[in-house]
Design a binder for these strands. Sequence first.
RNA 1: CGGAGUAUAGCGCAGCCUGGUAGCGCACCUGCUUCGGGAGCAGGGGGUCGCGUGUUCGAAUCACGCUACUCCGACCA
Length: 449
Amino acid sequence: MRLSRYFLPVLKESPKEAEIVSHKLMLRAGMIKQQAAGSYSWLPLGFKVLQKVVRIIEEEQDRSGAIELLMPTVQSAELWRESGRYDAYGKEMLRIEDRHEREMLYGPTNEEMITDIFRTYVKSYKDLPLNLYHIQWKFRDEVRPRFGTMRSREFLMKDAYSFDLDREGATAAFYRMFVAYLRTFHRMGLVGIPMRADSGPIGGDLSYEFHVLAETGESAVFLHADLVDKPIPSIDTDFRADLAPVFNDWTSLYAATDEMLDEARFAAEVPEEKRLSARGIEVGHIFYFGTKYSEPMKASVTGPDGSAINVHMGSYGIGPTRLVPAIIEASHDEAGIIWPVSVAPFEVALINLKAGDAATDAACDSLYGELGAAGLDALYDDRDQPAGAKFATADLIGIPYQLIVGPRGLRDGQAEIKHRASGERETLPLATAVARLRGLVEPQRRDKV
RNA sequence: CGGAGUAUAGCGCAGCCUGGUAGCGCACCUGCUUCGGGAGCAGGGGGUCGCGUGUUCGAAUCACGCUACUCCGACCA
């Protein structure tokens, strides 16, 4: 992409409504625009990152055996009356009336609808286990939206729903999601630490939240320090195998949010030098809730003995529109965002130090073509701007590598590569620059973990 | 929903106390010179001062009401 033809409205100053660093940087980097309280447009750069985050989530969900579909945002109140939640959900639910005065709602979650789909088509225990998910916009009329897209009223959520014959099956499904979540966050350069959680209004008795540690996190968390760099399950993980050992291994180390903190246990189970109290951003939440919905909504299958069995369900959420700021909170410096390659909007910033100079333009145009041919996603800063402005933009929007080309280096046939995260620079022959970048970028794409 | 604040050009702000019809920096437009870390000079465009009512000869400025947004608390991916 040539920057001169892109839509990238960067700001030098942060709009005053932004309080935390990720919100400020998302506004300054031209990723989002606020439209109302808790409501944001995703501008091209932000949307590109969001799509990469979504893609990683999809890959890991698919790998774990979940199947993607898409349900509508606007739902009928009828289904919610069946489960009893139409009245129970409260003011967070945005209620709408259509022209026929039918009661509708903008979905805050989809347990009822997925249960309806399930009960329509699935009749036999032989069709289990089943895990269906979608990634769709949700609306929760939060009392106080804040922190940009970290807590917005309209937000994107991946919600998966598992269906099993019994508690054992459902627990296995829960473990699969648990492992998929560890891998998902890891691929985005995050450490998502599972913590025992309260099940809240959705109900249930097996519930874990995944938290990313960050100073600006909304929850106080208490954990065993070894969880921070614990190696995650590899690509060889067989999701049909028994994943209980992985789950037990991870949950054997103490971790809890403040509302679940048991100080005595924390002190007893974690050696003093390993006790870490920090703040966390909740980026995922997984539940097992048994037959809470299948019973009232009559979602049953015929078992081997011919009897009707209410299915055991779980639901599994990840917030992509929250993950984007979470990644920024975890990875930035004074100059701006530092994207991990796996979610970076562009992998390389090609910086033409002297746009308008025929030789420099020719060299950059040629390199831009080579970068594309090498499969690298590059943003080519071809604007007629001082070098400083170009470096500042590339730093701000967090592109992992900068390929810097100017007349001075060209005299010796050289270019420079700057690594955004470390600030390290290397000078190398023009002819080898693209191959070098490819060698740097490809291993970090993390499409294989 | 309780408490606190803010609202003046696209963004950041001054002006308000002590009413006299709006200004600064950045951004934007034109021209020239520049270009190795957010360029310089010259010229230029852009504002129903959040909305409404009132006070006054006169309101960005004073009073009252409303709205939007932000922050602090209780809830959530």
